[in-house]
Write a protein that binds this DNA or RNA. Sequence first.
DNA 1: ATATTGCATATTGGATCCAATTTAAAATAT
DNA 2: ATATTTTAAATTGGATCCAATATGCAATAT
Lengths: 228, 228
Amino acid sequence: MYDDLKQRAIDLGKTASSSDIIFDALRDAIISGSLKAGESIRQEYIAKIFNVSRIPVREALKRLESQGLVRNERYKGAIVSSPNKEEIREIYEIRLLLEPNIIRYAVQNMSKGTLRIASECLDKLAAEQDSSKWGELNRQFHEALYRDAGRPIHLKIVNDSIDRIDSYIRAQLNLSGGMEKAHEEHMAILEACEAGDVEKAYELTVSHIKDSYSTVMTHLGHTGAMLD
Amino acid sequence: MYDDLKQRAIDLGKTASSSDIIFDALRDAIISGSLKAGESIRQEYIAKIFNVSRIPVREALKRLESQGLVRNERYKGAIVSSPNKEEIREIYEIRLLLEPNIIRYAVQNMSKGTLRIASECLDKLAAEQDSSKWGELNRQFHEALYRDAGRPIHLKIVNDSIDRIDSYIRAQLNLSGGMEKAHEEHMAILEACEAGDVEKAYELTVSHIKDSYSTVMTHLGHTGAMLD
DNA sequence: ATATTGCATATTGGATCCAATTTAAAATAT
DNA sequence: ATATTTTAAATTGGATCCAATATGCAATAT
């Protein structure tokens, strides 16, 4: 009895700490690009915004550092860090190793509900023009597709990896035809999932990631080698 | 000029913060097993040991959490966390995806110096019987082999992954013949590296990881499926 | 004028203190 | 005796204050 009250109590108990709230907010600010690479993050400034002391801000900055989103230098503070070309390549290499395998596991266990959620994401994506909202929907789409894989650790690595290159991905989407191309690839992947075609979903995911990489690198004026 | 003074100055500037020192110490304590899974870490207790306040301890705990080594629950504190069987499997899956590729890149760029360092590690390993020192040397060996791959992000993921299962690996080594078998595999991998045989090093690394997984799982009383 | 030194300000790292919450034991009721 | 409520101690989260370091500007020397 009192089940719903207990649930509310649990939810209340899980209210995030200041440090968690600030971590999320700073993370969003960085990946959305409102905090740009190289910019320094003043603890006092962030603390004033959230009406808190610098303590939870510092804890958030430490966590952001271990996620690779900022660089903390002692007595100098935190600087928003952005991967260079080698790091971007490495992140794409990692995505290329993990994500196709994730989708393979996912397709084998994909529920009707998941397919519906992914399909709804795709509908919204078709209508969306703003690249930053598009980016968020894009994440939701991939998370839906990957959910049934039952590989939370893989997912955390992939999500953290995407965080680090998100601003580049958004820039790439704004290129002519960027969103259209991604959208077509998404539809093809979803179709393969609906058909239960594991290997096709795998191959399409490989191509999707490789395409994203080459577009991002071209945008950065790089004309060198693609991913294996 | 002033070269040695400059080096000293750089070293001085890099003195670790209390938070960093405590992070390293707690991490070592966890992966060495002196802090056991499920044990709770009292901030005040750690702070007293290091003669500092609880502030740097808390920052260290936050970082340990984002590395998956502890679980922080609000107002309850930090608990040393250990992966369950599904998580162990997932971690091995990730290692199986990343490490063979790392060694592939590494062999293509491996220097004489690196081969010598790896060989020295192996010599020490041959003489070592204590599983916890063995574990540390084992790490050094793999880090040497992977160094020339030029894939620092891959390496961080792999090292963090190994941290999380380190206690299981050590337990596995203590099984009858555990160290001997691993040692033979290590020698074979090093030989392939010295011969510049990329694909052989790749395959041996795959087998090495699969063997480690099956031994660990057998030790946990699991008789189910091996890795793909 | 330029380079170097000294000083004031800004900023971060850490210590101490207080508030919020949990936990376990004591008190009370059934 | 058992279950519930009350209460006190332990513990964590956060605010405020102080110390350590960096940074920028003025003063000085060459």
